[in-house]
Structure formats: structure tokens, C-alpha cells
Design a protein around this nucleic acid. Sequence first.
DNA 1: ATCAGTACTTTGTGTTGCAAGGTATTTATT
DNA 2: AATAAATACCTTGCAACACAAAGTACTGAT
Lengths: 112, 112
Amino acid sequence: MENNVDNVRAQMRKGVLEYCILSILNRGEAYASSILETLKAANMIVVEGTLYPLLIRQKNQGLLSYRWEESTQGPPRKYYCITDKGREQLQEMDLAWSELVETIRTLKTQKS
Amino acid sequence: MENNVDNVRAQMRKGVLEYCILSILNRGEAYASSILETLKAANMIVVEGTLYPLLIRQKNQGLLSYRWEESTQGPPRKYYCITDKGREQLQEMDLAWSELVETIRTLKTQKS
DNA sequence: ATCAGTACTTTGTGTTGCAAGGTATTTATT
DNA sequence: AATAAATACCTTGCAACACAAAGTACTGAT
């Protein structure tokens, strides 16, 4: 609990990470390191140890597929691609997210 | 993984629960069962086994205080009240939440 | 050969939400 | 007086998950 502000943000990130990954991959295939960069650019700080297991989980759920591709620089890359099932899940997540935002708005607005 | 939709919502709720509790208590003191009702009314389903430990954690962090009050119906109630420190934390959470909403908006809007 | 860079993976830890069950108090019913 | 129902608070055991840290592997430059 060293830094409270960071902790608050970390807690909130939980639960929307999967949503973010599916959203990013819905724009086109990508490999883990590039997904990390995209998240970082959107101020969504995630580390490797979080992302890799998450991608594997989503692949095992049939939400993602992947293919290996040689890189001109460095080892081959694992390009992930969203599946039809993943797109269905993403639609559900879009709805769940809007509802959550609305729920919070309600809680903040209601005066007693 | 029986119901995917429920699971998606459950995942997203994580991390904003503490924010919800502080927001509710910022409107005035309340006891656990009434907090549960407020959350339920806002479509934020939470169970006792989640709420009680959370209230105790927040109290131990100095974000909440409480007092016992006799009830006309049933056992005494533990009325929780947000502290100055809790209000500070709530402000940080307000900011963190807006930023998270903005982050998601960015991720969804960007076309690659 | 060694190092740096890139990329993927695994292990161990701490936190947290939840299902399920438990304790305690009051009031109504038998 | 004893029992049941309602209300309220609390605890235990489990599973999921984010993260830090360390490891593996491939490529190209020094």
C-alpha cells in the first residue's frame, strides 16, 4: 500500500483489462508487445506478466486466435486476432461497460 | 463460467466497489444492509460476504469510522461514516474514474 | 564470442469477490 | 416459556487475477 493513488488506479483497471484487449484486437491483429504499447499510449499501464496470461486465457476461451509470424528484427511474433466469439463477447462488454458507467453516474448524482 | 454475461459484469465491478462505497457514504452515514440496498437499486449487485470485509478494510485504512446505534427493529446497527481521509481518497477516485472512462473512450474511438 | 534488443513464458505472492455458513438480537407466534 | 422469523453483523475457504521478478529464446551488432 505504498502509494495510494497508484493503488486506486490499479484496482480500477482490474476487470476492464479484458475489455481493453478485445477492443484493441477488434481494430486488427496485433502481438503482445504492440498491444502493450497501445495500452501505454492510452495511459493504461499494464505489464508483461499481466498481459501474456490474459491473452492465453482469452485464446483458451475461444475469443482469440493467433498465428506466428517471422520478424525482421528479433524472434518471431505471436499475432493475435479476435474471433467471431470474441466479437460477440466484445458486444456484451460494450453493454456492460455502458451500464457500469451509468451505474456510477447514478450513484454520484443521487442526493441521498 | 456458466453465464458469460454475468461473468463479464462481475469482472468489471471489481475495482470500482470501493469507489461506490465511498461515494455512497459521502452522501451521509449508513449501515451495511442499507448500503447493500442502495447498491442493488443502482444495479450494482454485491453480497454480504463482499461488503463486510470491504467496510472493515476501509475502516482500518482510516477512510471510514463507525458508531453503534440501537434499532427499533432487530439488532443494533453499525453506522459507517466517511472520514476526512476518506473524502481525500474519494477525490482521487473521482479523478481516477474519469481518467479510466476517458481511456476506454480513447481505445474505442481510435481507428488503429 | 559477447552483448543488447526484442519477444514470449512462468513462478510465486498478495488482494479481492464470493458462496456458504455462523452468531446475535428483537419481535411475533405458538 | 419456547420457537420461529426477521434483521444484522461476521468468518472461512476458495478461485481468479494483477503483478514483480526471473527465465528462455532468437537476432544482429560489437
